[in-house]
Write a protein that binds this DNA or RNA. Structure first.
Lengths: 155, 155
DNA sequence: ATATCGGATGTTATATGTTATCATGCTTCT
DNA sequence: AGAAGCATGATAACATATAACATCCGATAT
């Protein structure tokens, strides 16, 4: 991968700029309307010279560290973060029919969870909250469910 | 060929008894103090003649269908259910230090989640709530964290 | 009894997901 | 220039999960 590589570190060390691959992956995640697996991403990037899983995983790691992406545990897939400000304690509403994922935040839920945990002396460092079901758009429709997952077949 | 409709199994047998393998796996899960992966289980069962992943996964499927076991998404592992009555909407507090998992229930959290979802027209069929952190016992201790996962080495 | 069906299992192979390791090269700091 | 740090590349291994197809068994219906 040839880097155009912005020669400007300028801003002090706290966060170095994202690499080309990292930006690319964040783009792909943002444009996808549904979570993408590491292999989905790899598939889309092969034509651009990325051809090994570790590259993808490393980029995802970085993006998650910076709060720019989330991992959806129950799908083994990744999405871009809508609201990069508060990256802790996000919850996701995943439509099992059309595959869309809505990032949801509710302070009460957070508070309640913290409360419940604290009551038993448990100290929470990270919460995974994933709601599966049907989104508003899909709720009326027939429930014979569809693919809801990237296929990877080149269109 | 579409079958012409099976002639009604009398009283739809609500639950046939568990098979030997299914019982065995439920046992193993109950005795383990931490979640076991499908391959952990397979390892323990090889000496008993079970030697292929599908068998294990199929048994787990059944157990989960009956609400006797849960899958911990963030660990890709399984635990027996403490309270087989209400198998929906359970939450788990997972100690990343010692590996224990506490099944937690709190009606307020459930209500809140349902609420949040409903507000946006989302219909929840299954919720995954997994809290990672340190349990009361481990909270004071040094945070240099340990294995917290079955090794599979022969005991 | 016999045909049949559903469920569970076995067997083999493969798909999907994730990580370790080692090598290389670029950028920045000194 | 040299050292440190980080991103990448390449290869391989490991871990997790499912597909496809065959067999077996027990319950039923005819």
């Amino acid at each position: 991968m040839p880097q155009p590589r912005p020669p400007l570190p300028a801003l002090a060390a706290p966060a170095r700029p994202l690499s080309a691959t990292q930006v690319r992956i964040l783009d792909l995640l943002s444009q996808a309307q549904r979570p993408l697996s590491a292999y989905d991403l790899l598939g889309k990037l092969r034509s651009e010279g990325v051809n090994a899983p570790p590259t993808v995983y490393r980029a995802l790691e970085r993006l998650m560290r910076e709060g720019l992406a989330h991992r959806i545990e129950s799908l083994n897939a990744f999405i871009a973060c809508n609201m990069p400000h508060h990256h802790d304690l996000a919850a996701f509403a995943i439509c099992d029919h059309c595959g869309t994922v809505a990032e949801v935040r509710d302070t009460d839920v957070e508070a309640r969870l913290g409360h419940v945990a604290a009551r038993s002396g448990f100290h929470v460092t990270k919460a995974t909250v994933e709601l599966h079901g049907h989104c508003a758009a899909c709720s009326g429709k027939a429930h014979g469910h569809a693919s809801a997952r990237e296929t990877g077949h080149t269109p």
